[in-house]
């Protein structure tokens, strides 16, 4: 990981967050057993395409028509997978721990939208992207996904191996100052 875990600029504070529990769950997202176990684990309903229901560290993100990302505190992952296995036994699904395969960042501040807008080919106008939505995309030269924790805060997830690149990219983008667009 980057040596400094937090960098501050007038635009936004970029923070490398600690490990977060993440489970890749593939299966029939319309199946009642799957919905039930996801609700039991996170308290959230299955989000619509392009959306995530995340409160603090816990929630669900829609990854693809047959894939969810379940987020929860890191320590709860093994028990959660056991619960999924028990609940979905006999059906076709896949649940794997990917907590250690990911890195998570927070970009917080008045310029957060522009920090992301410098790096991602995404329309981040407030009418087009707001809390509740979830976007998998390209950030610089890596794959990333993000959602908004609140109106001024993005949470960004990428692969662990490129965590340094992601942190430095976000930091450079924030440090360069505002564009004055959003």
């Amino acid at each position: 990981m980057a040596e400094a875990m937090q960098k501050t600029s007038p635009m936004a504070v970029v923070t490398a967050l600690g490990p977060r529990g993440m489970i890749t769950l593939r299966g029939d997202l319309a199946a009642s057993k799957l919905k039930a176990v996801c609700k039991a684990l996170t308290g959230a309903d299955i989000p619509a395409a392009g959306h995530a229901t995340v409160v603090k560290e816990t929630g669900l993100a829609w990854m693809s028509p047959d894939e969810l990302l379940i987020m929860l505190p890191h320590a709860e992952v093994p028990a959660a997978i056991a619960k999924i296995d028990a609940a979905l036994k006999g059906s076709h699904y896949l649940a794997v721990d990917v907590s250690d395969a990911r890195a998570v960042f927070r970009v917080c501040g008045s310029g957060a939208r522009e920090v992301m807008g410098k790096l991602c080919p995404v329309d981040l106008h407030p009418d087009q992207f707001a809390p509740g939505q979830f976007r998998r995309t390209r950030m610089g030269q890596i794959a990333a996904a993000f959602w908004m924790r609140d109106a001024a805060t993005f949470e960004v997830v990428c692969f662990r191996s490129v965590a340094d690149y992601a942190f430095d990219l976000l930091t450079v983008s924030a440090k360069a100052g505002p564009v004055g667009y959003y």
């Binding site: 610089g140 030269q141 490129v162 340094d164 690149y165 990219l169």
Partner: peptide, 12 residues
């Protein structure tokens, strides 16, 4: 921004 350390992602 793709220069120096950000020229390309290095996987570690």
């Amino acid at each position: 921004a793709a220069r120096d350390g950000l020229f390309q992602p290095i996987r570690k």
